[in-house]
Simulated assay, not measured.
Amino acid sequence: MRYNDTIKRLAALIGGLGDDAREAHFHVNGLYNGILNQWFPTVAGYVIEPQVQEDGVFMIVRHLDASRRMNSVLVVELKGPTKYNATGKRDIQTALTARMEKQFQFGHTTYGKIYGLGGIGAHWIWMACVKDITGRPTVIQMKDWTDDITSDTSAELFHQFALRVATIEECMMACIPAEKPLKDAFIGQFLDVTISRMESIDATCQ
């Protein structure tokens, strides 16, 4: 799966804007909106909703099922390319964590899992938030920061990401043990499998 020329040209435009963060930020929103629409089309029941709140603008991808239930499946937090530094990356991950947890807190999803996508310019990160059997959320970093979301390698990675989002309904029941030793072991095993899978995809696409 490769992205079309418009998406690739937009990424190149953003990369060439330098310190013009204001203009770049608007284009970053357009870039990710185009990518999200490719993977999460309305024909498959997805709705991409920009959200405006006091603490910033972000996007939520929701899924409308046959019973007319609307569930949040993906939270997207974006910043302009000049924010790609240690502070900017930390801010994105902190904001994503809070927004994913709020989807559970305010009942915006009946599922036991929700995903997070962070973007700073064309750099992106993939996270997940899963409830344990007591209902407490646990955030897992699925894939560390990756360069150029429009590259063929990133497109293959995003394909795996989109497949996980598409099968999120299968994870409606919380599956992480509540006890800390068991929880840590579960998350460690979960990440080992995920990282191994992602690394094999990376190697294939290089």
Results as ranks from 00 to 15, higher is better:
Arg9Gly: 07
Ile14Phe: 00
Leu17Phe: 05
Ala21Tyr: 13
Ala24Phe: 07
Ala24Met: 08
Phe26Lys: 07
Phe26Ala: 09
Val28Asn: 09
Asn29Gln: 13
Gly30Met: 06
Gly34Phe: 10
Gly34Tyr: 11
Gly34Ala: 15
Gly34His: 07
Phe40Val: 03
Gly45Met: 02
Ile48Pro: 00
Ile48Gly: 04
Glu54Thr: 13
Asp55Leu: 08
Val57Gln: 15
Val57Glu: 12
Phe58Ile: 05
Arg68Asp: 09
Arg68Ala: 10
Met70Ser: 11
Leu74Arg: 13
Val75Phe: 12
Lys79Val: 10
Lys79Trp: 06
Pro81Glu: 02
Tyr84Asn: 14
Tyr84His: 13
Tyr84Cys: 02
Asn85Ile: 04
Thr87Asp: 15
Thr87Tyr: 09
Arg90Tyr: 08
Ala95Thr: 13
Ala95Glu: 11
Thr97Ala: 05
Thr97Met: 06
Thr97Tyr: 05
Ala98Leu: 06
Arg99Phe: 00
Arg99Glu: 01
Arg99Val: 05
Met100Ser: 03
His108Met: 01
Tyr111Met: 10
Gly112Glu: 07
Lys113Ile: 14
Lys113Arg: 15
Ile114Glu: 04
Ile114Phe: 07
Gly116Phe: 00
Gly121Asn: 01
Ile125Met: 12
Trp126Asp: 05
Trp126Pro: 08
Met127Glu: 12
Asp132Thr: 06
Ile133His: 11
Thr134Met: 09
Thr138Phe: 13
Ile140Pro: 00
Gln141Leu: 10
Gln141Tyr: 03
Lys143Glu: 02
Lys143Met: 00
Lys143Val: 02
Asp144Ala: 13
Trp145Asp: 02
Asp147Gln: 10
Thr150Ala: 10
Ser151Tyr: 01
Ser154Glu: 05
Gln160Asn: 12
Phe161Leu: 08
Val165Trp: 02
Ala166Asp: 08
Glu169Pro: 06
Cys175Asn: 11
Cys175Glu: 14
Ile176Val: 14
Glu179Phe: 08
Phe186Gln: 01
Asp192Met: 09
Thr194Trp: 11
Met198Thr: 15
Met198His: 13
Glu199Thr: 14
Glu199Ile: 11
Ser200Leu: 14
Ser200Glu: 14
Ala203Leu: 14
